[in-house]
Write a protein that binds this DNA or RNA. Structure first.
Lengths: 237, 237
DNA sequence: TCGCTACGGTGAAAAGCGTTAACTGCTATG
DNA sequence: CATAGCAGTTAACGCTTTTCACCGTAGCGA
């Protein structure tokens, strides 16, 4: 009762708002993440949120960026659990942790890697774009380490389609990594298979045939590892 | 003017409504496919649409089913352009035509293969489920033909993880095809790579590295074909 | 201590959404 | 000819984002 003054004093924080938005996302789906619902959960009214965000879109954008950062951190921590010279272990743990996070956070994953949120041009927003790049660097850094510590055979530049070669060179320059174009190609191919299979599974597009795609995922890893000069080993337990 | 009576007589049709809905989807995105907008485009009011659909969801469901059918037909027609005994040609043309349709109909593709539309449980709706099965059968039929006319080496049942083996058997029975489990496995693996890479491209998740993933797609086909005992050949023109 | 500004909220309102209910013509049928 | 039913309407409810005017408090300078 006497707290009404203290309550008035206590201003909401951006973090609190994002946390509430995420809770709504997880519990009720993307459509439930409305300004009114967020405000209601926090005991305020919707227009108050405009003190913190210019629009609903911007709030969602911020949430996307935070999710990217969380996923990046999770993968980074998983990497730390592997002995530094166990290259195969690093590759496998990152791939498996990516899938694990995706399955444990389906709706967050769909927000990051599913249909592009209309009006949320990820590359047009500096914050989210940086979070995305940071996320991508986890994989690129790992890949760079794999290659530098134990190079594997890749296509020579001449063996790569000219159009593709140009694109790979541009990407390599943008990332400022010194890898042969053939290695960049392998990197992208691996990423497409990894994200492609996880997306299909999380978004429910494998249910037509499988309830548990885990063994299929492991088969893919077993197929990918040798291409990177790594030895596949099944997950523990 | 004198046409008001004729106009009153002319009832809307379900096909017309779906066509209008699709036009809005294509031109303005999924969020623009509202009952009010559809009705406005057709010169009526929103509640009138409830004579044809129980809800907005049901309208969208019907649209999804129709899109599945169109895609199925497109793939079927593409198959007809290939000489009956050109197995590799059939595989390549279906894969390429799938990607082509996806790129030419990004928003339709996103509706079919992107984030699951909330409340639109594809498997819970008989109509859409049947359209989906019909679509899947295009690939399964082709695959069955590939295998029966020129079997390629596959894993034996014993070489397949027991959990995966059970799932494959269940799927094989549901599809009523007589293929070894190893072949079913290859089928699913191919499908995951095909749909995975097309989804990533269409949903804009390859843009971080490539503007034109076409050569990457061709590389994937060149990798897939030998696994099916087929010889890859680059696309014409 | 007074006065002012800036902050963080409120309520009302506009415009648009899905959905329901009551109503209105018109057609076709018994 | 009456009537049932179809295909549309308007009105309304509650939801959405967003803008606007307003209000009380905190903290600061004079």
């Amino acid at each position: 009762m006497a707290e009404t003054r203290r309550d008035r004093l206590r201003a909401a924080t951006v973090e609190e708002i994002i946390r509430t938005a995420r809770r709504l996302l997880v519990e009720q789906g993307q459509d439930a993440v409305t300004l009114r619902a967020i405000a209601r959960e926090m005991g305020m009214t919707a227009p108050a949120l405009y003190r913190y965000f210019d629009s609903h879109q911007e709030l969602l954008t911020r949430l996307v960026g935070d999710l990217f950062n969380e996923l990046t951190d999770v993968l980074g921590e998983a990497l730390c659990t592997v002995s530094p010279d166990d290259l195969a272990g690093k590759f496998l743990v990152v791939a498996r942790e990516f899938r694990r996070w995706a399955l444990a956070h389906e709706r967050e994953y769909a927000l990051l890697f599913g249909n592009p949120v209309p009006g949320l041009d990820i590359d047009r927003d500096d914050f989210v774009a940086e979070c995305g790049r940071r996320f991508g660097r986890v994989f690129m850094t790992l890949f760079l380490e794999l290659w530098s510590k134990s190079p594997f055979p890749v296509r020579s530049d001449e063996e790569i389609d000219p159009s593709l070669r140009r694109q790979l060179a541009r990407y390599r320059d943008a990332m400022s990594v010194s890898l042969p174009l053939g290695a960049i190609l392998v990197f992208i191919q691996c990423w497409v298979r990894l994200q492609g299979s996880v997306s299909l599974e999380v978004l429910g597009h494998l249910g037509f045939a499988l309830d548990d795609p885990a063994p299929l995922f492991e088969l893919m890893l077993a197929d990918l590892a040798p291409q990177l000069g790594l030895r596949y080993s099944p997950p523990e337990r």
